[in-house]
Every structure is written in C-alpha cells, then in structure tokens.
Write a protein that binds this DNA or RNA. Sequence first.
RNA 1: GGUCCCUUCGUCUAGCGGUUAGGACAGGAGAUUCUCAUUCUUCAAACACGGGUUCGAUUCCCGUAGGGACUACCA
Length: 492
Amino acid sequence: MDVRVRYAPSPTGLQHIGGVRTALFNYFFARSLGGTFILRIEDTDRERYDPRALQDIYDTFGWLGIGWDEGPRTGGRFGPYFQSERTELYRQYAEKLVESGHGYYCFCTPQRLEKLRESQAARGEGQGYDRCCRNIPPEEARARKERGERCVVRLKIPLEGSTGFRDYLIGVIERANTDINPDPVLLKSDGFPTYHLANVVDDHFMEITHIMRAQEWIPSGPLHVLLYRAFGWEPPEYCHLPMVMGEDGQKLSKRHGSTSLIEFRAGGYVPEAIINYVSLLGWSYDDSRQIFSKADLERLFSLDKLNKAAAVFDYRKLEWFNGVYIRERSDEALKNDLLPFLRDAGLVGNPASSREEELLLGAAPIIRERLRFLTDAADMLGFVFREPQPYGAEELLPKKMGAEETAKILSAARSLMFPAEGKNFFDKTDEENEAGFRALADRLETKLGNVLGPLRVAVTGSRVSPPLFESIRLVGEEKTLARIDAAIKLLV
RNA sequence: GGUCCCUUCGUCUAGCGGUUAGGACAGGAGAUUCUCAUUCUUCAAACACGGGUUCGAUUCCCGUAGGGACUACCA
C-alpha cells in the first residue's frame, strides 16, 4: 500500500518549531518509504484566520527546502487542499450523521453554553455539554432547522462502553466513552466544520494511511475513531509524536524565546541546522551519529527509532549545529547567505556593489569558523566596509605597557610593513610577514602578541578580530597605513 | 478536579535481562594558535522511588512520586 501522510496546519499563527517538527517527520516518513506527502490547509476557523499565516507556511517550507507532493499550488488528485473550499463536503457528511442517528442538531445558544459552564464550575463538576438537545425528536429538530433556527451538528458519543485505538508508539489507548468530550460539535452554526469533522473526512477522502501528529492530540483519538466508525470507515494508523517542551518542561511557546521559524531565519540560523536539530527531537539514528542532511533523513528516517518522552528544546545545541553548517558553506555560498544580513546592518548597499561582494567573498574564509549565526558577521566585518568603531588609546596598549612604548612598536611595525624600498606587506606571503613580525618582536625584546595586538586594534578597531594578516589585506594598503598612523597619533 | 500519556548525565539520546551504562550539546582542565574562533586531548556528570518476576534487573510487571497534555461552535 502506498503511504500517504499529511501535514495540516491551520493558518492562524506563524509556523513554529513544534509544527515544523511534525511536518518534517511526516515528510521524512513519506520520503523514506517512497510515499506521498500532502500539505492541507485547515482554515476552518474564520475568526482566527490570517492570510499572513498562510504566506508564512509557504515562506517557512520554502526556506527549509521542504516541498509537498500534493497541496496548495502543486495541486493533486484529492484537492482542493484548503478546507474552506470543501465546506459542502463536510456539510453533507454532517447531514449523513444526523440521518444515520450518529449525530443531532443542537440549538443551544452560546449564551446557554456559557451559563452551563459557569454553573458547572460553581458546583465543581466536570465540564462539558449537558446533551440537552440530544433528546429532541429528530422530526422536531429537522422542522426547527428548516424554519431557519440557528444550530450546530453534534456527534452522539455512546453513553456506555469504551473506545480505543492502537498507537504505533504507545500501544493501545483506550477511553471510557463517558470520558470523551460529551457530544462535540462537528458542524458550527456558521456552516464551517470543526477540526474533528474536517480532519476525519479529509483524511478519509485523501486516503491518508498514517496520522503523525503531536501527543497533545491523543485525547481526541477515541473521538476520531468514533467518527470513522459512524461513517463506516476504517481509521488510519496513528503515531503520536512526543511533545517539544521549553526549558521549564511546559509546552514550548513564545515565552521560552524564538519559536517561529521566521524568527530563527532572521536570527541568522541556517535551515540545515534547524532540520538536523529538530529531527533529533524525539528521534535518533544510532548511538553516536549527530549530523544528518535532509537527504540523509529522507533515506534513514524510521518510526521505530522514535522516542516516547517529551523533548526539551535546547537552543545551545541548535546553536552548535548552526556553527557546524555555517562552517560547511563554500565561500560563495557563505557570501550569498551573509549579504542580506550585511545589507540590513548597513555595511553594504542594496544591491551590494561588485566591490562589496568581492570583499565579502574574501572575508568568507576568515570569518566562517567564527560565526555561530549569520548575524554575527556584521560585527566582525564592520572594519572592512567602513572605518573601525572609535576606540580609546588604552585599547591599543598591551598588558603592562605604556603609550610611548606602544607607539614605538606601532611605528616599527609600520616601517616593517611599508619599507622605503623593497617588497611591502602586501607583496609578501603570510609566512614571510609572520617571520618579519617575529624578528621585529625579538628585536624589540617583546612577545609577538605585543606587536600584533596594537596593530590589530589599529586596523580593526578591536582586540578581537579575524586573523590579522588576512584582515589587513581586506582593508587594503592605503587604509591600513592611515589607520596605523591614526593609532600612533592617538598615543603621542 | 477528571481522563490519558511520559520518566537514563543539566539538555538531546543509545540501551531492547548479564555493559567499566555509550555518544552529542553545554560545563571544567589542557594542547595548538597573532586575538577570537576552529580543531584535538581529557575530566566531571544519569538509570525518580518502592515492591515484585528472575540465578540476575536500567531493561519485564505493579504501585508511589514527579512532570506533561487534554478537558471550546480553536486547531
């Protein structure tokens, strides 16, 4: 049987880690088995619908490089893939349930329901609908509905017995029917279906074979099974994925930090790191492997390596993955990744000039292993694209060294780098330059660091910088000279 | 409150009756190095608790405790 799985987000908010993890697992599961991955938009909540959230779904998965075989834009045999375009289907099937006696019209107003909840809470009773309309004779209910009375369709949950289903990970999960939400609404009074109805109907007609979703959905499992049965359909296989938590053990949310993918993107994370890290939340391959490309996961993912327990999202490990994948970038790729961030920082124009691109390409190898985030580059490369940040004279001084002595060192370094005749710094190799500086340090009876330190501050404006010689080449002869002179001037 | 789910280093995890309980991130120490970083070496760090079952339990069963999810005309 052909495996068919889906990711079914509702466009009410930004795509976040939890949702993306679910999407990824479904996607990898399908890919590993040669199955079909479907994207379905569950836009049945008209109150909370947000078109930006829909765009965000496209942006997020576009950025991650995760495509769907069927769904919006790509189409497919089972469309439409927007639930808002399938309302007639849901209405029909809700109606069928009423006809078959599995469902009924409920005329209770939101106000009555609200009052009911209040009194239940006051008495400390369990909450839930009191099934008031369940006993209205069907003919009477139909007549009221036809007279135009506003109503919803509810599912008749059996009053006794229990309903269970088998979860791939957890095993058999069973609930007494009396513990299931008493007669949940299937069709809202606005004619739109609720999640339960739309989900079951679509999964059936889209021929979904496996449902992989977060464990927070476990409680509604029996309800869905009851629905399948009421329709006379066979439920798919279930696999409830472990939850993703914040540091405090609560469901991961905004207050734990960035959770939406758009934030990670803006924060300088690369998609490979997100994919790799998130895939290891509740899944593992063996006892040691950490690094997985998307292609690896498409091949290696399997359900039997899933973990049952919830996983805490660790930003620091993600950070490490981010560094790993940044270091894997070619100069050219890194340059392209960095460009938008440098543009936002105002270091390069929009669009960047070819000179700016050339500089960035040259800078790529010297900052690559220093970046934890793409956003770090702006701070590291400021001195290449503009004058260094102003610094105080004391920044130039090596430990236990005065201004006069430091000025002498800088002057000596200047002479070494730009001799009156012969090859200058830019004509020599790094090895030759280093040898020269070492000899100079010896001559001045000091450490190499005490020569390069002040020079570093002079050229880059900071005691911490990319490798000095390469940095100097990026800055160029004219500016290097000027910056050294400015530093000496600051000292005397 | 009720129902359901979960429980190996701080975190992610390996383990599927007999292991010095392994790896990764983070942390400590050291080496390399022109700063920072990278890299390498190394150290510390866990089977929630109590009962069973068994020759033997981290592993199987049952409790306890702790944590979580759900309990809408939201998904």
